[in-house]
Each structure stands twice: as C-alpha cells, then as structure tokens.
Simulated scan of single mutants.
Amino acid sequence: MMAFFWQRALFVSLAAAMSVYADMKLDCGTDSVRLVWTEGRSRADTSLFRLGNCFPTSFSATEAFFSVDFDDCNFRRIVTGDRLMFTNDLTYSSSPDSVDFTRPVVCEYERPEDWYPRLHAPIFNTFGLGDLEFHFGLMNADFSGPAESTTFPLGSFIPIMASVAQETHQPLLLFLEECVAATTPELQPGSTLYPIIANEGCLVDSLVSRSKFEQRQKSSELRLSLQAFRFGLGEEVFIHCKLVAWDPNGQDNSKKACHYDNEHGWEQLDNSASRYLCACCDSDCKSRRVRSLASGKRGMAQKAVLGPLTITDSPGMDPACTLAPSI
C-alpha cells in the first residue's frame, strides 16, 4: 500500500517531481528532499542559506545544496483532506539579527486512505539556538494528555497548550504573542481570518466569548481554553500562532498574557498586580524586537500552525460564541 502511495505522490505545488523556481530546484522524495539554490548575486555568501535550521549539505560560490530527511530541519507535517504536506522555509541571513529573505519549500502528496496522523505527536517540533524546543498541540479537557479528537461542538472548549523545553537555558516565560484562525494551513494575502490573540498577547476572542488563559503549571507552558467559534464551521480550521519564550524579568506591555473578564476587565495571567500591562489591549501595545538567546538577550520567537480541527454546529450554545469577527 505504501509503495503504491509513494508512486502516486502528487507534487501539487510543484510542476513535477523536479520543480524549478526562479532560483531554486526542488526534488521531493518519499521521505527526503533535495534542494539546490543558485545565487545570482555576486556578493552573497551561500554558506548563510538555511533550510529550516539546517546548514547547507554543501555549497559553492554560486550554489547552496541541501539533501535532508523530512524528520530533520524543522519540517512541519500538515494533513488536510486528502493531502499530506511537508513545509519549511529557505532563508538567507546576512547578519544574526536579520533575515534578508525567505522562500517557502513545500512537498505535497496524496494521502493514503488508511493513513492518519498520530494525535499523540506534537503538531511540530523545532530546535532553536541551544536546542530550545517548542511544542504546540491540542489537549484533553483537563490538559493531562493529548486530545482524543480534533472535532469540537460549537461553544465547547478547545484546550490548547504551548510549551518550550528549556534544556540548560535560564527559566523562560512562554507567551502566545498572536494567533488567528484560518481555513488554510498557509496564510495568504486576502485570507479571511478570525482573530484570537492580537496586540502582543491580548486574548481578543475573550471579548466575545468565555475563552481564557488557564493558570500556569510551569513558567515554560501556556494553557488556553478557547471557546469553539462559528468561523469556519464545518470546515477544516487551522490556528496560526506566534510563540515567544522570554526572560521572566523582562515583561512589559509587549510580553504578556491578558484575557478579558466581564466583571474585572482585562486580567494579567502571571501577576494580578501587573494588570496595568493589559491597559493597552484596547488600543495599541508598543512592540519590542525579540532577539536571540544565544546573544545573551531576552528571548526567541517561533511561528506554529495547529490543525486541522473541525468545529461542528450544536444547538443551545452560548450566543456569544456565534460572533465571528474577521480581520
């Protein structure tokens, strides 16, 4: 069955098994990928190209070559409908604090009918500087284990947990800086979105629902009870978030976890005395750049996608959950 599946693999985002972008050749295999980037700029250093977090397998004055497995380099596995996708980004950084450009790398296949993803596996794993590992996934009702289903009735709660494995790093606080729901695994210009978290840590969905941040069990974890909304009802829904691991001593109004309480207004998860950090949730919160842990600065950020999940209609739910603002 699997042999037949791989023979029928479809490279939908590619013209054929060997696909050619303006400067990139991509060869998607059964469990690996070969990528060749040809650089036209004479001063570019091809050793500075990265596929996810992987260095080039080899490089020359004009080309960067990668030959890697999908289990490496932070490839993300996304299952949607009858498609199985492995996605990553090819980036070029001329300095540690900047990314000059990024190019999506996608291998897409037909999913065999008898193949399903394991819910016990994290949606993605990513290793940052110093083996900093982020996790993002659906949980059961009391957050004691992985979800047993990815289908949620309208108005019920979707338990979501984000965490970061600190390894030998100093203690870190984890935040969800922004989250939106979409009906596609990739955000595109013009996509219709449902705002969940905005303004650098403000759970704006709690203004129209009973969504809230749960009490932390560890500083390196963040638990979110998200009330299932009407947006994307009956369709596959993907939740796109930006996770930030941050120095606990460096909190300000750009690094916070705030949700709205009908009786008390905006509440700060980590310290009720610092609820003033949430005051900007009704206006604009000043942003501050996230910099590298390896450089001895404050923190690190990682984008993540959770899904697909499905929200189904169910009578008798709280009317608040039927509101679906879009941005």
Score class of each variant (00 low, 15 high):
residue 4 F to C: 04
residue 6 W to I: 09
residue 8 R to V: 11
residue 8 R to T: 08
residue 10 L to C: 02
residue 11 F to Q: 07
residue 11 F to V: 04
residue 12 V to L: 15
residue 14 L to P: 08
residue 19 S to A: 15
residue 19 S to N: 13
residue 19 S to L: 01
residue 22 A to M: 14
residue 26 L to W: 09
residue 30 T to H: 14
residue 31 D to G: 12
residue 35 L to W: 14
residue 40 G to L: 11
residue 44 A to F: 05
residue 47 S to N: 15
residue 48 L to S: 03
residue 48 L to T: 00
residue 50 R to N: 12
residue 52 G to R: 13
residue 53 N to Q: 02
residue 55 F to Q: 00
residue 57 T to A: 14
residue 62 T to Q: 04
residue 66 F to L: 11
residue 69 D to R: 12
residue 70 F to M: 06
residue 80 T to E: 07
residue 80 T to Q: 12
residue 81 G to V: 03
residue 83 R to N: 05
residue 84 L to S: 13
residue 85 M to I: 01
residue 85 M to D: 09
residue 87 T to P: 14
residue 87 T to L: 15
residue 88 N to C: 14
residue 89 D to Y: 04
residue 91 T to C: 14
residue 92 Y to Q: 06
residue 92 Y to F: 15
residue 93 S to D: 08
residue 93 S to R: 08
residue 97 D to K: 00
residue 98 S to C: 11
residue 102 T to I: 09
residue 102 T to Y: 10
residue 105 V to A: 05
residue 105 V to T: 07
residue 108 E to W: 07
residue 113 E to N: 08
residue 115 W to G: 00
residue 116 Y to S: 15
residue 116 Y to L: 13
residue 117 P to A: 02
residue 120 H to E: 00
residue 123 I to V: 05
residue 127 F to C: 01
residue 128 G to C: 00
residue 135 H to E: 03
residue 135 H to Q: 00
residue 135 H to A: 02
residue 137 G to R: 10
residue 141 A to L: 04
residue 145 G to F: 07
residue 145 G to Q: 07
residue 146 P to F: 10
residue 147 A to C: 09
residue 147 A to H: 09
residue 147 A to F: 13
residue 150 T to L: 10
residue 155 G to H: 06
residue 155 G to D: 07
residue 158 I to C: 05
residue 160 I to N: 08
residue 170 Q to L: 03
residue 174 L to Y: 10
residue 175 F to M: 15
residue 176 L to T: 03
residue 179 C to H: 00
residue 183 T to A: 09
residue 184 T to V: 01
residue 184 T to W: 05
residue 184 T to R: 03
residue 186 E to I: 11
residue 191 S to N: 11
residue 191 S to R: 04
residue 192 T to E: 14
residue 195 P to T: 06
residue 197 I to L: 13
residue 198 A to H: 02
residue 201 G to S: 04
residue 206 S to F: 00
residue 207 L to W: 05
residue 208 V to C: 07
residue 208 V to S: 14
residue 211 S to M: 06
residue 213 F to C: 06
residue 214 E to L: 02
residue 214 E to T: 01
residue 217 Q to V: 15
residue 220 S to Y: 04
residue 223 R to L: 01
residue 226 L to Y: 12
residue 227 Q to S: 03
residue 228 A to D: 12
residue 234 G to E: 00
residue 238 F to I: 01
residue 243 L to P: 05
residue 243 L to D: 01
residue 247 D to P: 08
residue 247 D to G: 07
residue 253 N to M: 12
residue 254 S to L: 02
residue 255 K to Q: 14
residue 256 K to S: 12
residue 257 A to G: 03
residue 259 H to P: 10
residue 260 Y to G: 04
residue 262 N to M: 10
residue 265 G to T: 01
residue 266 W to P: 13
residue 269 L to T: 09
residue 270 D to E: 01
residue 270 D to V: 00
residue 271 N to I: 01
residue 271 N to P: 06
residue 273 A to C: 05
residue 273 A to T: 06
residue 273 A to S: 13
residue 276 Y to R: 07
residue 279 A to S: 07
residue 280 C to F: 08
residue 284 D to T: 15
residue 285 C to A: 02
residue 291 R to D: 15
residue 294 A to Q: 08
residue 299 G to W: 01
residue 304 A to G: 12
residue 309 L to G: 10
residue 311 I to L: 04
residue 311 I to G: 11
residue 312 T to D: 02
residue 314 S to R: 12
residue 320 A to E: 12
residue 322 T to G: 11
residue 323 L to I: 12
residue 325 P to W: 08
residue 325 P to K: 03
residue 325 P to I: 09
